[in-house]
Nucleic acid binder design. Sequence first.
DNA 1: GCCGTTTTCGGCCCGACTGTTTTCAGTCG
Length: 577
Amino acid sequence: MNNTDIAGIFEHMANFLEIKGENPFKIRAYRRAAQVIEHLPRELAVMLAAGEDLKSLPGIGQAIAAKAEELVRTGRLAAWETLRGSLPEGLSELLEIPGIGPKTAFRLASELGISSVDELERAIRQGKVASLFRLGDRTADNLLHQIESLRRKDQRIPLGRALPLVEDVLSMLRPLPGVKNLVAAGSLRRFRETVGDIDLMGTADYPEQVIRSFVSLPAVRDVLGQGPTKASVILADGLQADLRMVEHEAFGSLLQYFTGSRQHNIALRARNQKRGLKLSEYGITDASTGRLETFATEEDFYARLGMQYIPPEIREDYGEIELAATHALPELVERSDIRGDLHVHTHWSDGTASLESMAQAAKEAGYAYLAITDHSGGLGIAGGLHEDRLLKQQQAIHELNQQIEGIRLLTGIEVNIMSDGRLDLPDEILSGLDVVVASIHSSLNQSEGKMTRRILKALENPHVDILAHPTGRLIGKREPIAVDLEAVFSAAAQYRKVLEINSMPDRLDLKDNFIYRARELGVLLAINTDAHRPEHFELIRFGIGMARRGWCRPSSILNTRSVDEVLAHFRQGNTSR
DNA sequence: GCCGTTTTCGGCCCGACTGTTTTCAGTCG
């Protein structure tokens, strides 16, 4: 049983306990455990097999550790079987409907015998729901609307689609007269790989005018609501965006509050409550005096708590609060730290641009070096390079290096890892290149054992420098390959191989929690764009966002180093066996 | 059920809105 399944069961248990009116803190404990487990970089089964104590995980104590172990060992959980037997199975899905909480769900089940969304819809149409005590026509009507919108609701959408959309909106509103602040908060600001709703907030001299302009933007498909300081709209892709205009003095605490994450805020408040400070979106209240202090910036807000400013990307209650309190947060990698890209394509394979224009674009991006890594000729990739054309390309790169100034091109290849782990170019060819990026593009459905052996074999090749997009996932389109990443990370650390953080918004591969784990194991990472055209260099910000979510300092990222240091690192990898 | 620079017991984030009431429970973010 894997982590997703286990987390799912704990989440269901929380729902059922809630419906039964159990202790709310017990319920919260199950929810928190589910979240922690869901985002673990390693399988609980693996940790248990290694003899590790699950109680060392945050939010997991004696009882939940034992239950998790029971699930791993037997695939079942007696406590869960009992619980689910005591209530109608479908009740959990009722909680998905906005407006229905545990109390209402319980009453719908006990008083009307409803146990599914379909049954609820029928009951509403028959007028049964509106006749219940403390419910009425309005409530029933709203629920019906929620059910309908839930059925056509778009999923969370990838960050790569949401961010440009939101930036468009912001760039049209910011020039309005009197606008001081205007930013997106929420999971978008934290650079989560997918986002649900968008929370925009700002301060301005004439807030109503900003609201009016907002709802009449061309990107707005539908206006859900509009008041003097707040409006809700639907943008393209079905993305809901809320704009909130506030007083300038309270902007800092409001931004902090709406940036989240929820877990971060809960932990932050609990911690400071003990010190007599009450935190809210309006500011900080000293319990002894009852006086509310406001904050125009987040920096001031955190400083008042005696803490370092915490970058949004790591506000996940993953230890950042404690470190910020002792001023020991890591300095996270930034765009300006990046000195080159080690994975790009040109029209020599499936890219669209020439060597020259890619070099020029990299130079404009502020880079000192650029590795040209077109596809190797093997399996089914359009226009991949065979040995003769690769040699010609190397020649062209050498010549271009003579002509251009301000950037150094490195020769390279993105070589296919074939289904048995061999590479589709011979070692003699690979040894003549500055950078060898290896990746999987075929036979993606192999078993975990086979896939892991395949990748480990590729990593054992002394000429391989970087493993690109290690899991092969495409967000929302293709599942990651089945592979024992823990084994891959260990091998990479041992052989000094570099793992890629691919910045393509539909890849973001490795993802945040795996970056965190790889870094923990001492693996060096590279943030690459995998650019296929000059504009793609801009996508580096997504990779940087992931790296920051994985707590990477510049020292964890190879391409923050000079070209000589990069090449020196590859040479070490080549001779370390 | 979890957790500990005041605690191994006694706490556990905070405020607003909605619809239904006549003082507030339930839900949400």
